[in-house]
Amino acid sequence: MTAPTRVLVCDDQALIRTGFTTIIDAQPDMEVVGECGDGRAAVELAGRLRPDVVVMDVRMPVLDGIEATRLLAGAGVAEPVKVLVVTTFNLDEYVYEALRAGASGFLLKDAPPGQLLHGIRTVATGAALLAPEVTRQLVGRYAARIRPADDTDGESPLTPRELEVLRLIADGRSNSEIAAHLVISQETVKTYVSRILTKLDLRDRVQAVVYAYRRGLVT
């Protein structure tokens, strides 16, 4: 029998923490192993409890969710923890920063419980969770301003077809939508996505989206 997904809930509002915990603990394939109200506590608890997924708020006291995410899942972290950011605003630049910091995805706090559970399960498998309609607004709005000039230097290791798939990923398209657009099978799309992540040394689709915008491949 597969062990339940271990979840750490971090939000500075006790009512929201309680709500998330109740929803998650009601699932046979999940368990909340801890909860806290600030990013510093999240980092400390994650080190002790080793959760599979941290459900992380963005705006919190002591240490915000962005810095906590960077410490838990950022580049150079020896044993990164998967982080699912949950925020109030779908156009909050802090969410974009959280994705850059290493988060595996994000949801809005007003999403129905089923989306929260789906998000946790998705992130726990190592996949990324991006809401397409939010991605186009959020990343598109802030990436151009944040992208360093030297990110556009050098040639891409991707083939023209792989670049085309990467642009569609950055546009928030799902595998099925990419397959329909390019008139290829979903299995072929999965192969392209895997090659893109491997060639660019990226963890997941979230990092691929950020890469595409920071390299100027999407405007």
Rank of each mutant, 00 (worst) to 15 (best):
A179R: 15
A179I: 03
A75Y: 07
D25N: 15
D171K: 13
T21S: 05
I66L: 11
D57A: 01
C10H: 09
L168E: 09
C10F: 09
V206K: 12
V62H: 01
D153R: 11
A149D: 15
V209L: 01
L138C: 05
E93L: 00
L91A: 04
P51S: 13
M56G: 14
V85L: 08
E79Y: 07
I66T: 01
Q115L: 15
Y192D: 06
F20E: 09
L202D: 01
L107M: 06
D201P: 09
V85Q: 10
T87Y: 00
A128N: 01
A179S: 13
R167M: 02
M1F: 12
I16H: 03
A75N: 07
N90Y: 14
Y94A: 03
L217P: 06
T2A: 13
D153C: 04
A26M: 06
K199P: 05
L63W: 09
R203M: 07
R50D: 15
V77K: 05
A98Q: 04
A143Q: 01
A14T: 10
P80W: 10
L129E: 01
T69P: 00
R48I: 03
V53H: 15
R215T: 13
R6E: 13
Y94C: 05
I24Q: 11
A3P: 06
R215C: 08
R136L: 11
R141N: 04
P160S: 06
L15S: 04
I178T: 04
M30W: 03
H181Y: 13
D153V: 11
R173N: 13
K199V: 02
S176M: 07
L84C: 11
A3F: 08
T87M: 10
T18M: 14
V210D: 00
P4T: 13
M56T: 09
E162Y: 06
T18W: 15
I66W: 05
D12M: 06
T135Y: 08
A26S: 10
P51C: 12
L8Y: 05
S185C: 03
V81P: 10
D204R: 00
I23S: 09
L168Y: 07
L72P: 03
T21G: 14
G39V: 10
V53Q: 08
V58L: 08
Y192F: 08
L202F: 02
G76M: 05
T22D: 14
V183T: 15
P4M: 14
D25L: 02
G47T: 00
V32C: 04
A124C: 02
G140F: 02
R17I: 10
